[in-house]
């Protein structure tokens, strides 16, 4: 197993090997290893406390692992970098609870997310160019918020906030997108549309989706990884995983 992973390391986009982390004696991740290929759309399922969010925290630099390796694009060691650096390397993250800048307009939210130089002075003297304008317009129509561009983000519905956040991630132009429960609290119609949106996004970049909604995952129709107690329980197609005895026992229930 280990050998195959080290062989795939140079090509893989994201590479986790033997990652462990514990909080006050509780092992949130227990020697977790898995690999994401460039352009891949991957779904991650697992019961509460399986370590899904902690895994995202590790990848995005919010939490440092106690041991193990995390590499991006083969040789960039993510454990040595902080959130901002990792974001600038091209890893975007959507939180479980939609977090947008509520006292900014939708337009400003996207402008802030746009992948431009983010230092103090570049932002201080930033001027909106025609290119940037066009890019924001494009994303606005992708996430279907063109008509509300001048509204404050605080006034959006829950589903719209989720979409705005996805739009912000698009503006960030990441190579790898981590999406935590994107359809929580959405209507069925919104869920279906979100699946389409994510598949569209995955055409140009890698996406990792953490979700509980099995219907949504079936709709995505991609490789699934099931986590439990901080390590990988099973990996494969949705049908393969959902028929795995351990997965049924740990997560799906009978």
């Amino acid at each position: 197993m280990n050998q195959t992973i080290s062989q795939t390391k140079p090509k893989s986009l994201l590479y986790l090997d033997g990652v462990s982390v514990s909080f006050d004696g509780f092992k949130a991740l227990n020697s977790l290893s898995f690999v994401i290929e460039p352009g891949e759309l991957r779904a991650i399922i697992g019961p509460n406390g399986a370590g899904k969010t902690t895994m995202m925290d590790i990848i995005t630099g919010k939490t440092r692992p106690d041991e193990g390796q995390v590499f991006f694009k083969g040789d960039i060691d993510l454990t040595q970098r902080d959130e901002a650096e990792i974001a600038n390397l091209g890893i975007g993250r959507k939180f479980q609870k939609p977090t947008v800048f509520e006292s900014h307009t939708i337009w400003d939210n996207l402008e802030l997310a746009l992948n431009r130089r983010r230092g103090v002075f570049p932002t201080l003297f930033y001027r909106l160019t025609a290119d940037d304008r066009a890019r924001i317009e494009e994303i606005l129509s992708t996430v279907r918020l063109s008509a509300r561009r001048d509204d404050l983000a605080a006034n959006l519905s829950h589903g719209q906030k989720q979409w705005l956040e996805i739009g912000m991630l698009l503006a960030q132009e990441p190579e790898l997108l981590l999406v935590d429960e994107p359809v929580a609290g959405m209507t069925d119609a919104e869920t279906a549309e979100t699946a389409v949106l994510l598949k569209e996004i995955a055409r140009t970049r890698s996406v990792v989706v953490v979700e509980h909604d099995m219907g949504f995952i079936r709709e995505l129709g991609v490789k699934v990884t099931c986590l439990a107690e901080g390590s990988v329980l099973a990996e494969g197609s949705i049908d393969f995983v959902s028929s795995d005895a351990k997965v049924i026992e740990n997560y799906l229930g009978r």
Binding site: A84, A87, N88, F101, H104, R118, G119
Partner: peptide, 13 residues
């Protein structure tokens, strides 16, 4: 309003 969001967007807060 959302410090960690800003950080995950790549700003050095």
């Amino acid at each position: 309003d959302a410090e960690s969001r800003t950080r995950f967007l790549g700003y050095r807060v």
